[in-house]
């Protein structure tokens, strides 16, 4: 009975299998990027970029409708524009970084909704804001899987420099001088994964599957290696249970998935015993990270 409850929707319906496959791609791709976004204290920057995608996809939508290629290109341009604007504003104005990011994402959100609503089709506005994870077509699924492959390869190549640069940017500046390259590569990964998230969960919730599992995993471990494994597992479980919830109670799938990730975060907050300054020591010989 329980097994049937957990598995039947996926064995019976192809759209549920496709939704789970898309979310699996997001869990192995977007969530590890989200871990670094969280650890580098860039969650708000991620939020601003996610909202920055909206005007880009809105322009693409007005020009080419719900074409996957058009929306992806528009989102890429919008996200990168906001990332560049945020960097420029934090360097050249007296505004603090959080204020710069808040102004950008409010403007991006307003502009995006204005463009889409003026086209006169509110159903499509809902789709762009909250995604269509239950309606992933071949093109969208192909895009999600391609982004997952690119991201996994890039994260394997970048893991050490990105970790070191996150721990001590000053050290990396002296020993490698490649800090700006690492930062730029990371921002590109953030943008393409937010676009992948947008196709499944919409611009408003794309960041949810990146940040919430990362924050939950951080509650349980003080080791980057453990967090990088635990967070995608949590993201995938959120997707599984979110899709089940959506199926059984006929709720919107995207919010159900992110809601499950949120529930997992609350549970982690309540149950994880690890404090920020765990002082336990060990005399084990170090075997490397």
């Amino acid at each position: 009975m329980l097994i049937e409850l957990l598995l039947a929707p996926f064995t019976e319906f192809e759209f549920m299998r496709r939704a789970l496959l898309g979310c699996t791609a997001l869990a192995v791709s977007a969530t590890p990027v989200g871990v670094f976004l969280l650890l580098r204290r860039m969650s708000l920057a991620g939020e601003a970029i996610a909202h920055g995608i909206l005007p880009g996809v809105a322009v693409a939508y007005v020009l080419s409708g719900l074409s996957v290629a058009g929306l992806t290109l528009g989102g890429l341009l919008g996200g990168l524009t906001v990332a560049l604007l945020a960097t420029w504003m934090s360097r050249t104005t007296i505004l603090r970084e959080d204020a710069s990011l808040a102004t950008l994402y409010l403007m991006a959100m307003a502009l995006g909704v204005l463009l889409i609503s003026s086209s006169g089709r509110n159903v499509d506005l809902f789709h762009l804001l909250f995604g269509g994870v239950l309606a992933l077509d071949d093109a969208s699924l192909g895009l999600l899987l391609s982004i997952a492959v690119i991201t996994v390869v890039a994260m394997l190549l970048l893991h050490r420099p990105l970790t070191f640069e996150s721990v001590d940017p000053g050290f990396m500046r002296v020993v490698s001088g490649r800090g700006p390259v690492i930062q730029s590569a990371f921002i590109i990964l953030v943008v393409i994964n937010l676009i992948a998230g947008f196709h499944a969960l919409g611009t408003l919730l794309a960041l949810g599957i990146m940040i919430l599992p990362a924050a939950s995993a951080r509650m349980w471990s003080d080791r980057i290696g453990v967090i990088m494994v635990l967070a995608p597992v949590m993201a995938w479980c959120s997707a599984w249970f979110g899709l089940l919830l959506s199926y059984h109670v006929e709720a919107a799938a995207g919010p159900a998935i992110v809601g499950m990730a949120g529930a997992m975060f609350v549970l982690s907050l309540l149950l994880a015993r690890r404090s920020k300054t765990d002082t336990r020591s060990s005399t084990r010989t170090w075997k490397g990270t």
């Binding site: 650890l39 970790t163 721990v167 001590d168 000053g170 050290f171 080791r223 980057i224 920020k276 990270t289």
Partner: peptide, 15 residues
């Protein structure tokens, strides 16, 4: 004043 983020989840051996 090193720029080390001491809240980053890395152990002493890793640093």
């Amino acid at each position: 004043h090193p720029q080390v983020d001491r809240s980053f989840p890395i152990d002493v051996a890793g640093l």
